[in-house]
């Protein structure tokens, strides 16, 4: 019953609609960016569908990949962290935590229900965003084979070619793999949410901490520190865009991200189970 209650509450809240609207807006901006680039950089000499190079270099799948790449790193984590922040701190701040705990319901069950629901939300949001990006890519540009070259967006260190069918299959794989990556910031926000009783503070701290860790993990200077940050592993889904996937690297990164997620969840549960509700 608690799961149904939490589901209904989430669906009735404005959070999912707000997240989807923001992601659509983000995609629209990306599309506009590519369009104006094609117009201004080439003086209108090339068709937007082929952008500044040729169709083998850029198509709807490449667009989806670029859009997802940026959205995954900077937009999705914000909504995911916000979701985590709302679940415990928001409930506590609104007083409804007491309403729930005044029922014969263990804290562990309440926590796991909330975490499961947030994970489902995060997975749906990641998949929805990916599907939306692919859909926009198909309609606005048109699909094709994917060619990735070193340097640009750091997607690959050698030229990789995936034909359209294989690329679409890889996009399907990217969904669960990227969703797993997203659990780490989600669980981090649950942890902060278990300590901070204000949802604003919890969400702000989660987002700020994620961004700091993200920046640190992107700066080469922090080479020794990077292996210890979960943000360093988050973009491991890019491995799936290789012609030959290095599964060992994928599994190791997945283990690391799952480890961070479980660690954050364990610490959050420890706090939540034994904290007082003044």
């Amino acid at each position: 019953m608690i799961a149904r209650l939490e589901c209904v509450r989430m669906l009735r809240s404005r959070r999912p609609a707000l997240a989807v609207a923001s992601l659509v807006f983000f995609l629209a901006l990306m599309l506009l960016g590519f369009y104006t680039y094609a117009q201004t950089q080439t003086g209108g000499e090339v068709d937007f569908r082929y952008t500044y190079e040729n169709r083998s270099y850029f198509n709807g799948l490449t667009f989806a990949l670029y859009a997802f790449y940026f959205g995954f790193q900077l937009v999705l984590p914000i909504f995911v962290a916000a979701e985590g922040g709302v679940h415990l701190a928001g409930e506590t701040s609104a007083g409804t935590m007491r309403l729930l705990l005044a029922r014969p319901l263990s804290r562990a069950r309440l926590f796991s229900t909330k975490l499961s629901l947030a994970l489902a939300y995060s997975t749906a949001l990641t998949g929805g965003f990916l599907a939306l990006a692919l859909g926009v890519g198909l309609v606005a540009v048109g699909w094709g084979d994917v060619d990735l070259y070193p340097g640009v967006l750091q997607m690959s260190e050698r030229h990789e070619h995936l034909d359209q069918a294989l690329a679409l299959q890889r996009f399907l794989w990217i969904w669960p793999v990227a969703s797993l990556a997203m659990t780490a910031p989600l669980c981090l926000s649950f942890l902060l949410s278990a300590y901070l009783r204000s949802p604003v503070n919890a969400v702000a701290c989660s987002v700020a901490l994620y961004l700091v860790l993200f920046v640190v993990s992107e700066i080469h200077f922090f080479e020794e520190l990077r292996p210890w940050l979960f943000t360093s592993s988050m973009s491991y889904w890019r491995e799936l865009l290789r012609e030959e996937i290095d599964w060992k690297a994928v599994h190791q990164s997945a283990a690391s991200l799952a480890g961070w997620s479980i660690l954050f969840s364990g610490l959050a549960l420890a706090r939540f189970r034994h904290r007082e509700e003044p």
């Binding site: 990077r226 292996p227 360093s232 592993s233 491991y236 060992k248 690297a249 190791q252 990164s253 997945a254 283990a255 690391s256 991200l257 799952a258 480890g259 961070w260 479980i262 660690l263």
Partner: peptide, 9 residues
């Protein structure tokens, strides 16, 4: 699991 995943680096 974190220790296991350390191998990636």
């Amino acid at each position: 699991l974190i220790a296991l995943g350390r191998g990636a680096f």
